[in-house]
């Protein structure tokens, strides 16, 4: 399977599903995402019910805490990274390995940028006294956004592994499904962030 060499002409139409293993991975990642949606739904629901709740006289509220400009930049970084991973998949379809690697690397860079801003944001909150144990609100906020952040880290490690591991050998029917699954996962992370941006930051600032 990994020994077969392809050209753009012989490369199958749906390379990510051309083998049994590939098809299993493709279905599997979608099924996994279904369960991950439930996971996030539970954390979202908890966040909404604990929003602004804290010990008597708590000074932090969503309306005062969150700042849209930072969240907006983060959103843009992540949305763009989704777009670049689409480019990578476009090149995967055309059996252009260099294109895949380049666009996946750009995706990683954008993801790292997002992560850096998120770390800065957390650091800032902790610095002004809004730590994880400060209130029910803070616990819920850090858990929700942190769970997403953890997904970003996992996605980044996964994609970096793929880029490094396959750097020397090019595309084949064994690693194409892996790239594809990673990119689906990355899109999912992006969609979750859109909800976080809306529910936590936009609705938070509106009060």
């Amino acid at each position: 399977m990994e020994h077969t060499k392809f050209t753009p002409q012989t490369w199958p139409d749906k390379a990510e599903q051309a083998t049994m293993e590939g098809r299993n991975k493709f279905v599997g990642i979608w099924i996994f995402i279904c369960s991950d949606i439930t996971l996030f739904a539970s954390v979202f629901a908890t966040y909404l019910s604990l929003k602004d709740k804290g010990p008597a006289g708590m000074e932090f509220s969503a309306a005062e805490l969150f700042e849209l400009p930072l969240a907006f930049v983060m959103t843009m970084l992540l949305l763009t990274s989704s777009l670049t991973s689409v480019y990578a998949m476009y090149h995967l379809k055309n059996h252009n390995f260099k294109g895949v690697q380049i666009w996946m690397s750009i995706t990683v860079l954008l993801g790292l940028g997002f992560l850096a801003l998120e770390i800065y944001e957390f650091y800032h909150y902790v610095h002004i006294g809004f730590g994880y144990t400060q209130s029910a609100f803070s616990s819920a906020f850090f858990t929700l956004v942190g769970t997403h952040g953890l997904h970003v880290v996992i996605g980044l490690v996964w994609i970096v592994c793929l880029i490094v591991r396959n750097a020397k050998r090019g595309l084949n029917l064994y690693n194409a499904p892996k790239y594809y699954a990673a990119s689906i996962f990355w899109h999912f992370i992006d969609v979750v962030w859109v909800f976080i941006f809306t529910v936590v930051y936009l609705m938070g600032v509106l009060g």
Binding site: S49, L50, K53, P55, Y132, T133, S135, A136
Partner: peptide, 16 residues
């Protein structure tokens, strides 16, 4: 780890 999801004195809620 000292979180407060269920501790009502800290704004938590055991019904969750």
């Amino acid at each position: 780890f000292g979180a407060n999801f269920f501790d009502h004195t800290m704004g938590g809620n055991t019904i969750i």
